[in-house]
């Protein structure tokens, strides 16, 4: 089961403020370079891309590679403009896809 956590500040936000968003998702980020105790290759299983859309517009995306640790954690700033959903999407190997969103509320 995939679990993700998205943190949107709860403090009052005004239009034009820079707010920090945080997102973390459960994922093994298996590099494909390791082997089992019996010498069998463990196939690569990583998240390749994370996209963040704010009010429907892509505001941040990142490509991931094998060197990213398990449970990728991202934190970045966006300029708040108006109240709207912050949607995260993670896409990876083996058809992996997870979407989760939170509401960013702008007061004034």
């Amino acid at each position: 089961m995939t679990t993700a956590m998205i943190l949107v500040p709860r403090t009052p936000i005004r239009s034009g403020d820079v707010v920090m968003l945080k997102a973390m998702i459960s994922h093994p980020m298996e590099t494909g370079y390791r082997r089992t105790e019996n010498g069998e290759e463990i196939p690569r299983n990583i998240i390749r891309r994370m996209i963040c859309r704010y009010d429907g517009v892509e505001v941040f995306s990142v490509e991931m590679h094998q060197a990213i640790a398990a449970n990728p954690f991202m934190s970045f700033g966006v300029v708040a403009t108006k109240t709207g959903p912050v949607e995260f999407e993670w896409v990876g190997d083996n058809g992996f896809r997870h979407r989760q969103s939170a509401q960013l509320t702008v007061t004034g």
């Binding site: 089961m1 679990t3 956590m5 973390m24 459960s26 449970n71 954690f73």
Partner: peptide
């Protein structure tokens, strides 16, 4: 708590 990966386990456990 938002950078502690164990909290993902907590969220899954609560579900």
């Amino acid at each position: 708590d938002f950078s502690n990966p164990a909290m993902l386990g907590v969220a899954a456990g609560e579900a």
